[in-house]
Write a protein that binds this DNA or RNA. Structure first.
Lengths: 194, 194
DNA sequence: GTCTATAATAGGATAGAC
DNA sequence: GTCTATCCTATTATAGAC
């Protein structure tokens, strides 16, 4: 079902770049390190990404975009009540964070903050990723009967709050911020119900 | 009243480092660039910070910690209703962000994400800063009559949500995420009232 | 305390053989 | 497509004159 036969070189490079940039940021990640982690050579990296580090950053962010979108889609579909689904999503993120020994937070936050206003190509795909995630939440809320305006505003806050809670949880090395944010978001969503 | 007679060299260096790391992150900021922006020489930077870049990063984060704590304290004191005060704080952050042409978001987020789990000295002062900010919010909520448990949980979510909304607003180049987060936080806080 | 010069290393990127 | 070698620049950090 899943499409993971054996990742080709290009895909290994993108995955390694995405993981390293998640953990160390864009500036903190070297192309040579990416090649090493991907079991590829520097020549292969530049073969697939003639645009250099920026092009690699763009691909890494797009990869992470889809990865988190998949997690979000699965979380949102797991419960008929979107409020409960989002609280469960926050707990799932807390589990992933703890299980990675607090290394794997939001896959694009670090890159986003380092490049915003300075690397237009990356800035753009980062903005698209956030919009993508908000759209998934908004659509789920509309499906559940929330009016358009409420669904939009809540989707903005849901993604913002999850971002901030993940950062906070990572820095504090504690699941609490994510768990509490999930509960508060559910409460907020329920306060708009009907 | 304010204590700004003429900043000495050390203070100019710390301020420049804090501003540059806010905008470009820790990894993206060079010591030479800090020296240049501070109108100091490389020798002066290493004179005041023999610990090198890490020591400079620690000082920059501590400076930003106090800076944001001052803004937060002023915002929280500006309204008798803490819910309204926090919504106003979010709007104030949106104004600052827009007025800086979306350059000046949270002063420590980028550094936090790049160094967490990798640079213990910086990780520690980042964690202290977040705790400091949460404490200010929690104390204000307790003052306003919220029970200890609610005040604690709400303070965690308030700082998390402001962090996430600032990141989101910066990336989207829009005040909306911060304004909406402020309104949602006020609504959440009011739902615990009494 | 300040300045310049420089060491030592790592970074992004390219060339060309295979 | 893959690999190695290399160029060029920037980076952190140090030395020592003033």
């Amino acid at each position: 079902m899943a499409n993971t036969p054996q990742p080709g070189t290009r895909e290994r490079i993108v995955r390694a770049a995405s993981l390293l940039m998640q953990r160390q940021g864009y500036e903190g990640t070297g192309i040579k390190q990416v090649a090493q982690e991907a079991n590829a050579t520097l020549g292969s990296v530049y073969h697939f990404f003639p645009g250099g580090k920026q092009a690699l950053g763009v691909a890494a962010v797009q990869h992470a975009d889809q990865e988190f979108a998949d997690l979000l889609t699965a979380s949102l579909a797991a419960d008929a009540d979107p409020a409960k689904a989002i609280a469960a999503c926050a707990r799932a993120l807390a589990d992933l964070l703890r299980d990675s020994d607090w290394m794997d937070g939001c896959p694009i936050s670090a890159t986003a903050l380092e490049t915003t206003g300075r690397v237009p190509d990356i800035e753009q795909v980062v903005a698209q990723a956030f919009q993508h995630w908000r759209d998934l939440v908004a659509e789920r809320l509309r499906e559940a009967g929330f009016p358009e305006g409420d669904a939009h505003d809540l989707s903005v806050t849901v993604i913002s709050a999850l971002e901030g809670a993940e950062l906070t949880a990572q820095v504090a090395r504690s699941e609490t911020p994510l768990v509490v944010a999930g509960e508060h978001l559910a409460r907020l969503i329920n306060s708009y119900k009907k």
